[in-house]
Amino acid sequence: MKRIQQMLLEMARGNFFYSLDPGAKNDNMASLIVMLNMVNEEIRASFVHQGFATAQDSPRYLIQMSLLLDANGTIEMANNKSCSLLSQLPKDLIGQNVSEIMTANTQKSWHNKLPKLLKKDFTDTIMPLEFITPEGLIISKDFHVSTFRSLDGNDQKILMDTVLFSKGEPIGKGLWKHALKISKGAKSPKVRLSQKDIRMIREVHDMILNNLDRDLPKLKDLALQMGTNEFKLKYGFKQLYGTTIFKFLTQERLRKAKTLTLHTSLSLKTIAHMTGFKSIPHFSRAFKEKYGRPPSSLRK
């Protein structure tokens, strides 16, 4: 009971990386510890996947664009979220000049501002920038732009980043109202997501988490069920959570399977069934691809 009390105190402090060994006994106390470990894992994951554990009416996902440039404006590094938002693979994005993915107006202001930024070794400024994807989606946001010297002091670097969702920024004033727009003449126009659309997509997100053991219906049927169309459902989910619906389903199934494998004595066959995998081989292949080793290796 003292160990359980300590764990609850750690959770109250916000430490969700604290867990208990249930021990060898198969009694009520061991079952309680297993359940606490699972709750702890779920809360920890909610911070990663939703931004805030209890955010019912707040943004649930922290999306940060971050680009590292050389003094000429060539992209040397881009984080995964930047690649996802800009709809480009890292190998295609890195090596481009950043002006190539900017709108015409932003290109002009960027080229005017860049020489001034590079006059000093270290600068920090805020710039309104617009980036455009190959499909014509415009990402418009204020970016924090910093210049600095490399470790050897010879090369100058530029770091630009922005947070599209933040804890204090309401949905109506955030990404979906101001940061995503449609460029004129786009060949494949995208839809604008309303607050109602975002709530609907969150419902789909929660439905997936609560039914990991079940197969999803066809996206067309799911969209009709949610009162929308397939395109808006797929597009909106990808923009809000940074991945496709089916990839999200798989990653959450594997995350729950890992928790059950580590903190319960359930057989791997039972765990596979509880997390929606049709067979042990399928479960093992997916688990190894995600975590680099088979689920059996987690068992002592």
Rank of each mutant, 00 (worst) to 15 (best):
S265V: 15
K187Q: 10
Q239M: 13
K157E: 13
H111A: 09
G136D: 09
R60N: 03
E252C: 05
N112G: 00
L193C: 02
G95T: 08
Q225S: 10
L209H: 06
L260G: 00
Q156G: 02
T54K: 07
T261V: 07
L137N: 03
L137C: 08
D213R: 06
Q156P: 00
A257S: 08
N26E: 05
S66A: 14
T123E: 13
G95W: 01
I138S: 04
S82T: 15
C83P: 00
S99K: 06
R13L: 12
M226P: 03
M11E: 07
I33E: 05
H178F: 12
L118I: 13
N40K: 06
L151K: 14
R44N: 03
L69S: 01
N210L: 09
K218P: 01
L89F: 05
L36P: 00
P128W: 06
I63E: 05
N72T: 15
K184N: 12
I201M: 10
T162D: 03
G14L: 05
M160R: 02
G51C: 04
T106P: 00
H178K: 14
V48G: 02
F17G: 02
N112S: 04
K196Q: 13
L180I: 14
H205G: 02
N37K: 06
M274F: 05
F143S: 04
V34I: 15
K81V: 11
D27I: 10
S82F: 03
R60I: 06
N15H: 09
I75R: 03
R293Y: 08
M160T: 10
K184R: 11
I63N: 05
D221R: 15
S194D: 11
R44Y: 02
L9M: 12
T106Y: 00
L151A: 15
V34T: 13
D142A: 13
S31G: 08
L67H: 04
